[in-house]
Design a protein around this nucleic acid. Structure first.
Lengths: 357, 357
DNA sequence: CTGTTAGCGCGTTCAT
DNA sequence: ATGAACGCGCTAACAG
């Protein structure tokens, strides 16, 4: 156990021969004028004693926790990277980030985490739109804790003032355009988790793409969750009626990779017979064979935006960079959603090759 | 901003018509005898006011932060899962977990995070052995903050009292055994990040395996970091001199996947010509084609052990489950390292097939 | 320029 | 069984 008693501001004051207020002033680099000599004395005492300010006491006194809460569905892939980036970003503003995983969208766990964060008196919350159940979130807002949602859709206005979302719809639209340009004879969207906002967004963009580019091409929205991987591929092949190539756009790279493996197993050539586009740009999209075309998630940009908006809402003065960011990225008309563009990373799975059979 | 003033214990006391001490007693379920009527009154008041205890004040008063710190290299894959599990585990003991990423083993960032955690007066620290530079860690221990390392090797005794490690050496040993059993004519270990403890452990186990099972088989320890993927494969093929199959054991699944892609590109058949064994059992080890044999990381077990040991060191009374865990998993002879067994997950990349050419 | 003092919200004796 | 009072370590006026 830690019996070692940490030095306090009082110890420092004694050691330096000044009052605690002076020590506090020096430590916090307040703008009050101080004798350089005093500053030196205090700093020396701090060094000698190995003093470290007690965050609990500091924040209790300041009536602010200088802590932000983040709730994500899990720590894997994109979410983990987002958490890491966000922590970095808010740290620059002097805020600490408490990260919780909702344990795969379990509302019960989610409630507990929310409760924990409120007990910690977090100054702001960042929640993944998918992980949160609306009810839990309701009163938080009522209690005035600033809240920013990322990748959340369909939240009532009273709850969510701002959602910072990746533009899945547009990406899906682009995927269809790509397939069309590559001469796909049939186009499929293989989704997952019906009803989930992120999935709906993809479907919407997919449909728009079909409408605008290739309305008369056979197409379908499939649910890999229901059909399974094999079922999805079967259905897709059935729909294309032997026409090649067939374009399959998937909910994410994981699904794309599974489909790719199945194609290998069945000796279906990619991209000659089937073209594949995934989403997330995970490591394995690039390292698989053939490599899978995907959409890169601008995690850093999104995290920066979330941080900037939250800081602004909290009343923190922004640095130039953040100001510029908020200036170039504005919410859309209704002012409640900010969409972030994603970039397609073209790889072998959509390469144009002559079918050699 | 949050102008809404949260109710305090005083408000509750007033509302319930009792003193704050009573409220405190009720809230903390103290063993002091209380009138059921009093308890009811307090609980009602709490509900009516929506009171939530202030963690900062509570912990300041208790002279404990009830917070633990975790430093990992990054949030991806195994580390992310570990963080998630550990958070869950310590939460059951009433502890909060503050997670920091060392930003890919940057000692400067690491120092800052350590400083942050100490200012927060964390009751204990969990550090990844790779992410931490020894110097930074030195005085922490000196100051009496309990510290548990996971996956760290070669730490001086003064700093680390206990390391809870995955048994990479043994896994590597098993990998060699598997290759030998499968009749591999040459066996390669393709490592990364020379000098890193986790890599050294693998090499050590690999060498032991070669010695015990197949000393006269051509073998080599390669560094994919230096040679690159192509260079590694070239060198491996050169070494085998056309003999098949060739067994390649890699630092992790990521490397295995990259090698697999290269094999595909060069029309080298897996597992007929090259057998592959990875490490980490990532999603893509299973979803690739052919699927890659790998070692599963017992993340939950490791997290449970870390939590249990830390709790014990802090002086928390353990539940039965944790006691049992500590009883069945004891440190080795020197008492400073606890090794966790890993299970090989056999897949297609090491399947025994007749070469059909 | 520096020191005094009153909180911040809660835990914890010690009387009652 | 309940309450008054002090302390945790620090910030923030306000005096001086």
């Amino acid at each position: 156990m830690n019996n070692y008693k940490q030095p306090t501001i009082i110890d420092v004051a004694q050691e330096a021969g000044v009052s605690i207020a002076t020590v506090s002033n020096v430590i916090n680099r307040r703008k009050v004028p101080m004798a350089p000599e005093t500053i030196r004395k205090v700093e020396e005492a701090v060094g000698r004693l190995g003093y470290r300010r007690n965050v609990m006491a500091t924040n209790l006194s300041r009536r602010r926790s200088y802590e932000l809460g983040l709730i994500i569905p899990h720590f894997g892939g994109y979410y983990g990277r987002f958490a890491e980036m966000l922590e970095q970003k808010v740290h620059r503003f002097g805020y600490h980030l408490s990260i919780f995983s909702a344990g795969g969208m379990n509302p019960e766990i989610e409630r507990r985490h929310l409760e924990s964060l409120l007990q910690r008196r977090v100054d702001g919350l960042v929640c993944h739109g998918l992980a949160m159940s609306m009810e839990s979130t309701q009163h938080i807002v009522g209690e005035g804790t600033p809240l920013v949602i990322f990748n959340g859709w369909g939240w009532p206005e009273e709850i969510v003032k701002l959602a910072i979302n990746l533009d899945f719809a547009k990406a899906s639209y682009e995927a269809v355009r790509q397939f069309q340009a590559n001469g796909c004879k049939a186009i499929i969207y293989a989704g997952r988790r019906k009803g989930l906002g992120a999935n709906e967004q993809r479907i919407q963009g997919f449909r728009a793409g079909i409408r605008d580019f290739t309305a008369d091409t056979p197409h379908a929205v499939l649910d890999a969750g229901e059909l399974g991987i094999e079922g999805t591929l079967d259905e897709a092949l059935r729909l294309s009626g032997g026409q090649k190539p067939l374009g399959i756009y998937t909910f994410n790279d994981a699904l794309a990779l599974e489909l790719l493996a199945l194609c290998h197993a069945r000796q279906i050539r990619v991209p000659e017979e089937i073209q594949l586009i995934g989403m997330d740009n995970e490591f394995y999209a690039n390292a698989s064979f053939p490599s899978i075309t995907s959409f890169d998630m601008p995690v850093e940009l999104q995290a920066s935006l979330v941080a900037a908006f939250l800081m602004k809402q909290i009343g923190e003065t922004l640095d130039e960079e953040s100001e510029r960011l908020l200036d170039t990225h504005r919410p859309r008309a209704d002012g409640r959603e900010l969409l972030i563009d994603m970039q397609m990373v073209a790889r072998q799975s959509t390469a144009q090759k002559t079918v050699t059979s």
